[in-house]
Design a protein around this nucleic acid. Structure first.
Lengths: 256, 256
DNA sequence: ACGCATTTGTTCGTATGTATT
DNA sequence: TAATACATACGAACAAATGCG
């Protein structure tokens, strides 16, 4: 029987409230995370307590938590509890950075801040971050460098744009003082947790300024990685454009 | 089925290290797939039947199948059954191809076969595919083109290497005659199903031959995508190197 | 058009195992 | 050792989707 494009059966779809119980529980839990009821790194109530609180069985709560754990919103630890995922842990240091050295183990990268300024969001940025025309944005530019301490070579040039209102206190000084991943700063100081991202990857030729900063000839091929990061509720809260020098590193991806 | 004196499941005691029942069931199912007991597109037995066959509860079988469905080994369809995943479906046409047009919906790509030859596997290929030195390999070269029928432009230049023994009958003629994705051919005619892949992505400058085939200037930046594809049992069975022209397309990735 | 059997999906309840404190 | 929390396993019942007669 071949598949002819038969029209989808007209379902009695009048009630969108036809959602499984565990999905409803999941929604409740997500809004709890969104509202800051449980903070990153903290434990949420036990399955049995949540079951009692919401008047469902423990297995139903379990299924809701299972899905959230699969989405990296929560982390389960047997015998200890279930915790709100955080960027403040070794395993999740660079959760979104797929750059890997061609040889050897992924090593720590050095950060070098180049710029941080407040400005009106450019049109394209405003569109992607769902900002109103002319609204404030913060732009950050920085380098990531690899190698031993006395032989550092730049591998990534990052440009970030963030919504001005949510990142009010973000200044050059604040960034200079910070030792650690940016997402950890955002989470700890600005209550913005990135949970998901989409990337568009291209090969481009290095412009003169970029080439100088990365130490490559003008026109050299670079990997352009445009990332849009989302927080709870699928709200885009960061636009990042990275230029990767892929001579001795590569972008690693796993397909399933 | 409520037998009063049904024999309790003879559990394999003293397994090297403890493994949950559902994991053992999963192993049994995977080996069933690997051995060709159930073929791509076919339905496996129902949960209740598997539960009876293996002497475990239906919920335990369910958990095993859940994990395999999450790994894209199986596909569940409510009311119909659980099916062995296949590349022969519209949804999974280009399951590993992340190339997306910058504007508009992902469109069908045209295939143009350039070459297919048998040869001794080059050293690097032999290493990655776990072949013995000097063993036979098949190399395929082809173009993927996008655009309307009277205005096709090349966007991908693919070079593939396959183990010679597993792909004995793969010839230029055979490929010419085939209309459809390669992975579907491999699955249907050579009983090799790709279930997972790893990619290393770089930006490179187009060499003269590649530039000519893709219709770009020599030295133009291209995306180099080196893919190693695996079948059941984590055996690498395909090495593919793609050069993507990313002027009006990009490589799309989702990070979780 | 209708109902029935089959299969997966959801929900509940209970008991036991394993890890942590 | 004991208490707590997540992990595994079983059993039962009903809902929803599908296909067939």
């Amino acid at each position: 029987m071949s598949e002819t494009s038969s029209p989808p059966a007209a379902r009695a779809e009048s009630t969108p409230s036809f959602s499984p119980l565990y999905q409803q529980i999941k929604t409740l839990l997500v809004t709890g995370l969104e509202s800051g009821q449980w903070l990153p790194g903290q434990a949420i109530p036990s399955e049995t307590e949540l079951a009692a609180r919401y008047g469902v069985s423990q297995g139903t709560v379990r299924k809701a938590i299972d899905e959230m754990a699969a989405e990296n919103l929560l982390v389960r630890r047997q015998g200890k509890g279930t915790f709100v995922a955080t960027h403040a842990e070794a395993q999740t240091q660079y959760r979104f950075l797929r750059l890997t050295p061609d040889e050897g183990a992924p090593a720590m990268l050095q950060r070098r801040l180049l710029d941080c300024r407040r400005m009106r969001a450019p049109l394209e940025v405003a569109r992607l971050l769902a900002l109103k025309a002319g609204e404030a944005a913060v732009q950050v530019r920085r380098l990531l460098l690899a190698g031993s301490n006395d032989d550092l070579k730049p591998v990534v040039l990052d440009d970030l744009w963030l919504p001005g209102t949510a990142f009010k206190g973000l200044t050059m000084e604040r960034l200079q003082a910070w030792r650690g991943p940016l997402y950890r700063l955002f989470e700890a100081e600005f209550a913005v947790r990135m949970i998901r991202a989409e990337e568009k990857i291209r090969a481009v030729a290095a412009a003169s300024e970029e080439a100088a900063l990365l130490g490559v000839p003008e026109g050299a091929p670079l990997l352009s990685v445009e990332r849009l990061s989302y927080t709870y509720g699928d709200r885009a809260v960061e636009l990042r454009r990275g230029l990767y020098h892929t001579a001795s590193h590569h972008y690693r991806n796993e397909l399933n």
